[in-house]
Simulated scan of single mutants.
Amino acid sequence: MSRRRIGFWYRFAAVICKPPLVVLLKRDWRGMENIPAEGGFITVVNHNSHIDPLAYAHFQYNTGRVPRFLAKSGLFKKGFIGAAMRGTGQIPVYRESTDALSAFRAAIEAVERGECVAFYPEGTLTRDPDGWPMTGKTGAARVALQTKCPVIPIAQWGANELLPPYSKRPRLLPRKTHHVLAGPPVDLSRFYDREVTPELLKEATETIMAAITRLLEEIRGEKAPPVPYDPRRERIEQRRRTEAQTRGRGMPAAQRRPDAREAVQEEGQGA
């Protein structure tokens, strides 16, 4: 099979979801010509709002190449939503279980059948304070190197202005614009036919994330930080700060900071 047919469930989901999306969001969609007309491929997309999967799926649906998302396995068990997830062929991700690799295998099989698999390589909503893409996880790179399929980078912006990250209250007015820019395939050929090591996957993932970030810079008309936000590094630094504060509270007052000793002495003199 060269491409996946849209099918009943995807058309049904479009009938339900497209009208409110059209009302809530204006559209500035570019780069549809970079979406392959035939054959399997993956898309890699930045994630900055709980509703941007719907907004992005609207863009992808209109290209005629519907995506299969990797989604939390729990969503597949929730009544109508679960039925829709299964009916549209989404891929369940079983975290911290013996089935954790099944999503990776399913993604490879889908690409090899000529389908599109959509990855949010950050793995969660960005935690960058200004909404830039974070460091990515290696799943998309693993599938790309295994299948040697086209990897289409896609940046989006605007759904986060309608519903900011980690917010439950939308900002309906003024009407927001959903910007999408799909770029040409990321060149990963230098990573082909090499031993797949953690270092190789990390470098390939950084190449993918850099392509997404460049597209988002074009949309936003500004430069991203030179070093992407890394939640793991932030957790380590936060732990160090906490430990330093804990040690500081256990020290005599005169040793907590360089000027504390002088402050204590001055207080004694004043008494």
Rank of each mutant, 00 (worst) to 15 (best):
I108P: 00
A253H: 09
L24A: 09
A55I: 02
P133V: 01
R142A: 09
L70P: 07
Q146A: 15
S73C: 08
I219F: 03
R86S: 13
R95H: 09
G183D: 00
G123K: 00
R233D: 11
I212D: 05
Q265K: 15
E243L: 15
D230A: 06
P174N: 07
G250S: 13
N48W: 11
E96N: 14
L216D: 06
L54P: 01
P185Q: 00
G87S: 11
L215N: 07
H47D: 06
D99T: 01
D52M: 04
A254I: 08
C116Q: 13
G139V: 03
F69Q: 09
P252Q: 11
A254V: 08
K78G: 01
V264K: 14
G248R: 15
L162T: 00
Y229K: 03
P225E: 13
R241N: 03
E161A: 05
Q156Y: 00
A159D: 01
I91R: 08
P133N: 05
F41H: 07
R261W: 15
K168R: 12
A71Y: 04
P92F: 08
A106H: 07
A182P: 10
C149N: 04
Q255H: 12
K148Q: 15
L163N: 00
L181N: 05
R3L: 13
G114I: 02
A182I: 09
W157R: 03
Y61R: 05
A100S: 14
Q269L: 14
V22T: 08
T135P: 06
E199K: 13
V151A: 06
E112T: 02
R3G: 04
V180Q: 01
P252L: 14
R232N: 13
A144W: 04
G89C: 11
T135K: 15
V44C: 14
D230N: 15
